[in-house]
Design a protein around this nucleic acid. Structure first.
Lengths: 206, 206
DNA sequence: CAAAATATTAAACGTTGTTTATTAAAAGAA
DNA sequence: TTCTTTTAATAAACAACGTTTAATATTTTG
């Protein structure tokens, strides 16, 4: 195994390239439109070659999902490092969440809307915990809010889930344009309606 | 055109049958798994025959979506007819919404999660307003709540959207099992967590 | 450098949704 | 009713998909 390092690097490199190309196509066109044949064409290889690096299409998107969650986690880095606590932290996190969702709609869908790669997550990796790391951040903020008495919630668990549901609902409905479907005439002001609605939620539970 | 009535009835009947079979298959297996070939096999006709009654698969699911919205609207019939107003009405509506979502997950997805038939809705039927009829019911309840001062919201428009986002988030996250992904260990109690969380929201904004 | 292991490829398989040309059936006019 | 015309159902094929297989090219190893 003289060149097994080199070989290993080549394999890593190919896997990375597949992921990069897949990610770009996916963010442009979504899951269904991102076909293995397109990926292969961009890379310049045969579709079958991809199967030497990933077991199937789902495995690629499972990997992409993991990347997306990491990307998502890193988006909260400045909040995690800053001194801000409690209510203001919760507000910042909410805005950041909405930002991420609206600016990376396909990544958001991959994480929280689509089901296929999710099953892979459950099946392949019982130690998967990047999602939980993100959720813990929210629970932490909610806990601080309850300690400082800045919001009225029953308990941390339920409060965190409530707020998550709320921002997820905001983002999901906006991404898929379902709000435009339900409220046709009241549309001019919804440009940043998601932010406004989140702020109103905070006011209401204060 | 002697028998054109009869013919017309046969066409209506066939369209109805296609819709019924599609609906059943869809509610059992979802969008992707409900293929035109399966539908045709159940009906006992050639797949191509279906194209004499619907332009394409999307058109079938657009029709199903309209049915789903009607079904959804009718689920609120008793609330609409009852005397209950304001806060209690909002609570009942929330529970009904969650009920519907959890008991008919595929229909719920068709209405509020999947995108394909949505585009058809926009494109084909600018007079489509069944969605708005449902939303108006919510706005009405929110308005009553604000009049009686039972909940603290900025305005009707924003308040209604907030509550919709909240219950949609609850249902959508549960349907796709994303909550189980984010909070692994806190799962025993979530059997009817959606209801509990909704009740907590109401308490918090009271 | 030859042999063994591995990666890439072209071709094919079994699916999809959809279209086309042909056959069967129903409708209108005599 | 009978003949013609319009309409519907069919089998077959198309393009595209994810995936598998068997053969070719490329490395790695002894």
């Amino acid at each position: 195994m003289r060149n097994s390092n080199k070989r290993q690097l080549a394999i890593e490199s190919m896997r990375k390239q597949i992921l990069e190309v897949s990610s770009q196509l996916f963010q442009e066109e979504g899951y269904e439109q991102t076909t293995l044949r397109k990926i292969a064409k961009v890379i310049g290889c045969n579709p079958a070659t991809i199967y030497n690096y990933y077991n199937n299409k789902e495995a690629i998107f499972f990997a992409l999902q993991e990347e997306a969650f990491t990307h998502f986690y890193e988006a909260f880095e400045d909040i995690r490092l800053s001194e801000v606590k409690g209510f203001q932290k919760l507000r910042k996190m909410g805005r950041k969440y909405i930002d991420f969702g609206l600016n990376h709609p396909h990544l958001y869908e991959l994480m929280f809307v689509l089901k296929p790669p999710m099953k892979a997550a459950e099946a392949l990796d019982p130690e998967w915990n990047i999602g939980q790391k993100n959720y813990d951040l929210l629970k932490e903020a909610v806990e601080e809010c309850m300690e400082e008495g800045s919001i009225r919630l029953e308990d941390v668990e339920s409060g965190a889930f409530m707020i998550w549901s709320m921002v997820h609902g905001l983002v999901a409905l906006r991404i898929n344009k379902h709000c435009e479907m339900m409220m046709k005439e009241d549309l001019p002001f919804i440009a940043n309606q998601a932010y406004i609605t989140f702020e109103n939620l905070l006011k209401s539970i204060k």
